[in-house]
Amino acid sequence: MRVALFVTCVNDMLYPDTGRAVVALLERLGVEVDFPTGQTCCGQAHYNTGYRRQAEPLVRRYAAVFDGYDHVVTPSGSCAAMVRDNFPRIAARAADEGRDNGLAEAAAAAVPKTYELTEFLVDVLGVTDVGAYFPHTVTYHPSCHGLRMLGLGDRPR
């Protein structure tokens, strides 16, 4: 099984330890993780602010960078939702405008193998206990993208 980490541009810039923690967790569970250095942004910032066409090259880039991997894991529900929900929308809109240029193929390649981290743990690896322990009470706030666009349900818990 070939697994790649999509660390996301926000994690890369603001929370680089998140990527390291994901790799440590997955490796502890016996998963060999690659980190393709050509990865950039999923295009969510562009798309959400009305720059859909500027997001199109990022759809192609994502598909190209993660080509050959069985699974792409990201610690971001919003980025996973961007790939799975919005990449096909971007491709469909470009096709409607007569500018497909491989977007439909790129989206079709990216969508089925992109997973939010907890979804990958539960649905692919079958892991519901990662052996973590934290001796304090915490509050978990499920993300809107995770709940509504990905349908993660209780997986993060």
Rank of each mutant, 00 (worst) to 15 (best):
V7Q: 08
V7I: 14
N11V: 15
N11T: 13
M13I: 13
M13W: 14
L14D: 08
Y15I: 09
D17W: 14
R20M: 10
R20H: 11
L25Y: 09
E27R: 06
E27Y: 06
R28E: 13
V31L: 10
E32P: 01
V33P: 02
V33S: 03
F35L: 14
T37K: 14
G38N: 11
Q39N: 03
Q39D: 01
T40F: 12
C42R: 13
G43K: 01
Q44I: 08
A45H: 12
Y47K: 02
T49A: 12
R52V: 13
R52W: 14
Q54E: 15
P57W: 15
V59W: 01
V59T: 08
Y62R: 04
A64Q: 15
D67W: 04
D70W: 08
V72M: 02
V72C: 09
P75M: 14
S76C: 11
G77Q: 10
S78P: 04
C79R: 11
M82N: 03
D85I: 07
N86T: 03
N86S: 11
P88Q: 07
R89P: 00
I90Q: 00
D96L: 08
E97W: 04
D100S: 05
N101L: 12
N101C: 09
A104Y: 04
A104L: 05
V111M: 10
V111G: 02
P112S: 12
L117R: 01
L121G: 02
V122R: 00
V122Q: 00
D123S: 12
V124A: 03
G126L: 03
D129H: 02
D129Y: 04
V130A: 06
V130Y: 03
G131R: 01
A132F: 09
Y133S: 15
F134Y: 15
H136P: 01
Y140V: 10
H141M: 10
S143C: 10
L147Y: 11
R148L: 05
L152S: 07
G153C: 01
R155T: 00
